[in-house]
Design a protein around this nucleic acid. Structure first.
Lengths: 233, 233
DNA sequence: TTTTTTTATGACAGTCCTGTGACAATTTGG
DNA sequence: CCAAATTGTCACAGGACTGTCATAAAAAAA
């Protein structure tokens, strides 16, 4: 499916040009000339934002960026800025999945960046509840840092561990079958043995739970596994 | 688009000559004979300033330089000075992006410096913050001087080393994938082997960390690298 | 130009993650 | 209670990924 891009740029010429190019590339583009239009919308509708820092309306592009970042730190925002932009406006924006382009820019360059950003988006975009950190009791998982924590000291998590954790959290309180786990975490084309999943559950239990007497990571015989935030014995 | 250059020089002959040459090279030049003219303008209109230190007006070239530096430390200023000028006056001024030429100078020389400074400008424009120096523990990186420091003695950093450092600092505590590193540091159209990135991480570790047992530059298997200011073992 | 520095690549070693099978433990149904 | 099926746990092997070096290629400086 086509990626949805939100373009905020007040110069009609540039807006048209960029929009056209992006559509030509198969993206679905909605363009606006004022930041307010986007902010009115509380839903997260787009997968990538292209924002001109110098906007004419009430809210500047800068404010829009802050607003977006606040809503979801990992949202990819491609910033367009004029060369002469005072630096302090740029300050503080360099968080998350951002990228910069200074005007004037090559259209090719823009397309390449858009492509690259969208490619990277996938992992962050699907974070549970849009937060990068999930906490329960004395435990926590940071999906951006690939870290877990129980009590005070953080430890690093491997990719698979992180992905499995993510899946279980997304489906909190639901039973997730081994099949589903394999499909979601390992992919549709790989089929490791069924023991593999058990082993990873075991690891998670060692990290965050009590093997042999799990509170959070329950196994439902014949069905799969279930993660519960509020521990149940 | 043509780069905009601001030339402040009170000798009409030289002013005309330099201005003409620069325009010939495709730059857009505005020339003034008094420092005040420039200072009246609070907007940042030019991308490069060429300033004669010995100006006749109320404000000297020296003051103009200070004024510019205050407004924005990373603004590129090319200083013209007579040979007889005491060097120590200049020393303090020559910060980072600056360069200076002693009169009389070859026009070729001037053009080369202008070109070089403008090429570097885009880099300064995207510094992590208004600050050109980032410090942690006993280490520091100066993005304007392209220098690193661990303990007392500074050492110079290459461009790529600096850019990688910048990226990692911008994304402090986040895992940055090799893909993203390649895109951000090397560009969207070049694709060096994956080993290349590792090698640069190795260099940074040698400079600022402890290879084999990194505190600041962590590698997340299968995901990428992560920089942490407060060292973690 | 020549010289020097910087960047890129490939080889190789070492590390740690993954996946597997064996076996124990547990649950379920008869 | 027993048997079958399922799950828990472990140790190990294979492999993917990373660390490191030497060296080649390229770029910059002299």
């Amino acid at each position: 499916m086509a990626s949805r891009i939100c373009l905020i740029e007040d110069e009609p010429t540039i807006r048209e040009l960029v929009s056209m190019k992006l559509v030509q590339q198969g993206y679905s583009v909605d363009s606006f000339d004022e930041a307010e239009r986007v902010m009115q919308n509380s839903e997260q509708l787009w997968e990538l934002y292209i924002v001109d820092l110098m906007l004419a309306g009430e809210a500047s592009g800068l404010e829009l960026c802050r607003w977006l970042k606040e809503k979801q730190p990992t949202l990819p925002v491609l910033i367009l800025s004029a060369l002469s932009e005072p630096l302090d406006r740029i300050e503080g924006l360099k968080v998350g999945a951002d990228d910069y382009l200074t005007k004037p820019f090559e259209m090719e360059e823009l397309l390449l960046r858009v492509e690259g950003m969208l490619k990277r988006r996938s992992w962050y975009a699907s974070l549970p509840s849009n937060l990068s950190v999930f906490e329960w009791d004395d435990c926590a998982v940071d999906f951006v840092k690939f870290e877990g924590r129980r009590g005070k000291e953080p430890f690093s998590l491997s990719q698979k561990e992180c992905m499995l954790m993510k899946l279980l959290i997304e489906k909190e309180n639901q039973v997730v079958s081994r099949d589903e786990i394999l499909n979601q975490v390992w992919g549709y084309d790989v089929f490791p043995s069924s023991r593999t999943v058990d082993n990873f559950i075991l690891k998670l239990r060692k990290y965050f739970d009590n093997p042999g007497k799990p509170k959070y990571f329950h196994s439902i015989r014949g069905a799969g596994y279930k993660f519960t935030k509020k521990g149940i014995l």
